[in-house]
């Protein structure tokens, strides 16, 4: 089967007054209808990889790739118009922080129905019904109240679920979720993961799950890419994380405290300049 997404030698560079900064330095992978995790520390280029796929990197950032194709279509040569159409319907991204990604002066209901009315030309009533149904799907108990609420009236967990609902309304084929649960409590996190998991299984969604939390990704995803300094240093099945070979991956796992673990100083990561080569 043809992959949903093909990425070959993806690079993102910024020309700044202080010189050239290469945020992503030749990342390659393919994605099917599966859960792919991208992990790494802040600054490793994982978010930039996600944004580059959706062509959301702003100048002076420049994106190049040998191949960047979604469902067989080349994304790099697509005019912005075509890209916008794809982004609305087939590609979506959930950002980390609902506080900054929802419009603070628009009710949730208006934000959720805007696309349905403009893009899909639905009537107000039909758009509203779709939005309420999607809020129910992300386990919001009182969707009618939430429709009339402003973002600041929602808790972090509710805001995050509203964003996920918004991204899922057009039923995308590919969802890039950037730290979608790191602002959430563990119980809400489990709920959000269950929702995403259901979408991959039932609707055949392709999911790129970006996170700094390696154990979480190992538990949730099918495959994991480990990024360091703009490159993929290791790629492995999530179930094989215990057998990770790269010293960076192993170091990241070892430095986490564990309940009932030893009391002495935690192992820290000694970075080898060679990892960035």
């Amino acid at each position: 089967m043809k992959p949903l997404l093909e990425v070959e030698d993806l690079k993102v560079a910024f020309d700044t007054p202080g010189g050239r900064v290469e945020a992503v330095r030749g990342v390659s992978f393919t994605l099917g209808r599966e859960r792919l995790g991208i992990v790494g520390e802040s600054g490793s280029g994982k978010t930039m990889t996600g944004r580059a796929i959706l062509r959301l990197v702003q100048p002076p950032g420049r994106v190049t790739a040998k191949r960047l194709a979604f469902d067989g279509r080349d994304l790099l040569s697509l005019p912005e118009r075509g890209m916008r159409a794809l982004r609305g319907r087939r590609l979506a991204m959930v950002m980390q922080d609902p506080k900054y990604s929802l419009n603070p002066v628009m009710t949730v209901g208006r934000q959720l129905t805007e696309g349905l009315r403009r893009r899909d030309r639905l009537s107000a009533g039909a758009a509203r019904r779709r939005a309420v149904a999607m809020l129910e799907a992300v386990q919001i108990r009182d969707p009618e109240r939430v429709m009339g609420a402003y973002p600041h009236e929602l808790s972090g967990g509710m805001g995050q679920r509203v964003m996920i609902a918004m991204m899922l309304i057009p039923e995308p084929d590919l969802l890039i979720a950037d730290e979608p649960t790191s602002a959430l409590d563990v119980t809400v996190e489990a709920e959000v993961l269950r929702i995403l998991d259901g979408l991959v299984r039932e609707r055949g969604l392709g999911l790129i799950f970006i996170s700094h939390d390696l154990p979480l990704v190992a538990r949730f995803c099918d495959r994991v890419l480990v990024m360091y300094a703009g490159r993929v240093v290791e790629s492995l099945a999530a179930s094989e994380l215990e057998q990770a070979r790269h010293p960076y991956t192993r170091g990241l796992l070892r430095c986490l405290p564990a309940v009932g673990g030893p009391r002495g100083p935690l192992p820290t990561l000694r970075r080898d300049p060679g990892w960035a080569e």
């Binding site: 700094h212 939390d213 673990g261 935690l266």
Partner: peptide, 30 residues
């Protein structure tokens, strides 16, 4: 995580050296 380990180690060392009392809040049981 790697930076967390360094900061936690730092706090533990300073507590020991200076005889500090900590009241610490976290959502992270570990």
């Amino acid at each position: 995580a790697s930076v967390q380990a360094e900061v936690l180690n730092l706090l533990s060392r300073l507590r020991e050296e200076r005889g500090l009392t900590f009241l610490m809040v976290s959502h992270d049981f570990a």
